[in-house]
Design a protein around this nucleic acid. Structure first.
Length: 195
DNA sequence: TTGGTGATGTTT
DNA sequence: AACATCACCAAA
């Protein structure tokens, strides 16, 4: 997708990311996953967002213009990745929470050796990053480049129903239903929304 | 199937 | 001290 796809209201980008492909390509392999679950984080108006209190060294990438990858380290062992949205200067992004493996499954399985079944390979934000080999080195990657990008697919559009719920694993901003997923898709994480 | 907890490091 | 998580174990 081109830059203009990302420089739009965050909630629209979040819903439109569903059904699209996340691609990670190197000279060794090409990994592709269909995005089935995301969460929107709306910056200064969202107490659950990393950018709620303004720009820091950690969240600097969130304040770039749309179309960059914000990767953060969490819980002492995991990485999660976000698609930055909107104009430069506002810290908003969409967390990628789950994808359905499409291509390069041998590499994905190798990285996710602990995963007992196909659906457990990428059904969580940290699992997804582990499966796709995304870590702190990928923070700030331009998604309009040739290494990690978002691809349009045939399943784009209105061929599936979009479900929504409150976001998972947060303590502030619980009231907002800013988690979106492809309804009925088995590769959506089974994490329950926080009450 | 559900719920509790340890692992582990960065940020506040 | 909390944290945008995961894997493992025990209980029912």
């Amino acid at each position: 997708m081109g830059r203009n796809f990302f420089i739009r209201p965050t909630l629209n980008v979040a819903r439109d990311l569903l059904g699209k492909y996340l691609v990670h390509e190197t000279n060794k392999y090409r990994l592709v996953g269909k995005i089935v679950e995301v969460e929107a984080y709306l910056g200064e108006r969202d107490p659950a967002s990393h950018s709620y209190r303004g720009k820091t060294k950690r969240n600097e990438v969130m304040f770039r213009s749309g179309g960059y990858l914000y990767v953060y380290f969490t819980y002492g062992m995991h990485f999660c990745c976000n698609v930055v949205t909107g104009r430069e200067g506002i810290g908003r992004a969409v967390l990628l929470r789950a994808v359905e493996p499409i291509e390069g499954k041998q590499w994905i399985r190798a990285r996710r050796a602990k995963s007992p079944t196909e659906v457990d390979l990428c059904n969580g934000p940290a699992k997804l990053c582990q499966a796709f080999g995304i870590d702190r080195r990928d923070n700030g990657t331009d998604l309009c480049g040739k290494i990690i990008w978002i691809g349009a697919t045939a399943s784009d559009g209105k061929k599936f129903a979009i479900g929504s719920s409150t976001r998972i694993g947060i303590s502030n901003g619980r009231k907002h239903r800013w988690r979106f997923f492809i309804q009925g898709n088995p590769f959506v994480s089974r994490g329950k929304p926080a009450k």
